[in-house]
């Protein structure tokens, strides 16, 4: 599996209450931010969904624990479980002896879980900007149903995405307000505007645009805690360090590979991530791509990549 190489330390078992679970229920993949959450030692469950739940620490750092279907990601913890046992909101969790205990029903051995890795950065020598056919394939369509409220959301998202495109070639300019206004904008658990920003930052990281990423990250660190919800903040803060969910990383790698087949596969995979999150993140990536393509006539792609 791409990005998964390290293993955790040797297992130690000291808890007997859940010993029947040992070896059967375990964490198979854990993100670096999720690792930091577990290192905090304890906390409680703040959100429950059908196939996942979110753990929080006293410092309100979050990670997401899910079934074997959960995608790899910086704040995600994938388990061997195909179905989550009953669990209560606000249930306490704690770690002991390389085991994560949640409420009274879940004990997950994380002694041999793989660590989800940040993506490989792209080699600017081999990078290829997407051609016309790829860009046509990647054209992001807005939500199918546009009512009064949706159109207002879309206007704001469009303004934010365009502002990013315009700002990226000249990051010495102040970050436009429209970019900040993406934070917390839109429907869904992670608002669409946040997902766009995640896509932007993941692309900037893989393209080695560290200065631009740093400027955006500064904005996120300043405003996210007041402008969006805790869960979306956790995803945004991970992306400030260039880390994103696996389908997004793979998509970014694919579109700069020049291989249309891998782009199709990665796009399909990203579209299936979340209800709209994958599509919105893709929109963010495309804002970065567009910012590179617009000034194509004046510079070579290698030159533009090396402008960072």
């Amino acid at each position: 599996m791409p990005g998964c190489s390290q293993r955790g330390p040797t297992p130690r078992y000291s808890h007997t209450r859940y010993s029947h679970n040992r070896g059967s229920d375990r964490i198979t993949l854990i993100g670096k931010h999720a690792q930091q959450v577990l290192k905090a030692g304890s906390g409680h469950v703040i959100a429950l969904f059908n196939h996942s739940f979110y753990l929080s620490t006293a410092e309100q750092r979050l990670c997401c624990v899910g079934t074997s279907e959960l995608v790899g990601g910086p704040i995600n913890i994938r388990t061997s479980q195909r179905q989550l046992p009953p669990i209560a909101l606000n249930a306490r969790w704690h770690c002991e002896g390389q085991c994560l205990y949640v409420g009274s029903n879940i004990a997950l051995d994380y002694s041999d879980g793989l660590i989800f890795q940040p993506p490989q950065r792209l080699n600017t020598e081999t990078i290829a900007l997407p051609d016309v056919s790829t860009l046509t394939l990647l054209k992001v369509s807005p939500a199918a149903k546009i009512g009064n409220l949706e159109s207002k959301v879309e206007q704001r998202l469009q303004a934010g995405a365009e502002a990013i495109e315009q700002w990226l070639p000249s990051p010495s300019q102040p970050l436009p307000d429209a970019v900040v206004q993406l934070l917390g904008c839109g429907e869904g658990l992670t608002p669409s505007g946040d997902d766009i920003l995640v896509g932007v930052m993941a692309a900037l990281y893989q393209l080695n645009y560290d200065q631009k990423l740093s400027l955006l990250a500064r904005c996120i660190h300043t405003y996210a805690h007041t402008h969006t919800n805790q869960i979306s903040q956790a995803h945004l803060l991970a992306s400030c360090e260039g880390m994103a969910v696996e389908p997004l990383q793979q998509f970014i790698t694919a579109i700069f590979s020049g291989d249309i087949a891998s782009v199709e596969t990665a796009t399909e995979s990203l579209h299936h991530y979340g209800h709209r999150s994958g599509r919105d993140a893709m929109r963010g990536v495309m804002a970065v791509v567009n910012s590179l393509i617009v000034p194509r006539q004046t510079t070579t792609s290698a030159e533009r990549i090396q402008e960072r």
Binding site: L182, L189, H227
Partner: peptide, 13 residues
């Protein structure tokens, strides 16, 4: 609509 009550969403609503 059901939306998170972020400042951006409040403005939109």
């Amino acid at each position: 609509v059901l939306m998170t009550g972020t400042p951006a969403n409040q403005q939109i609503m």
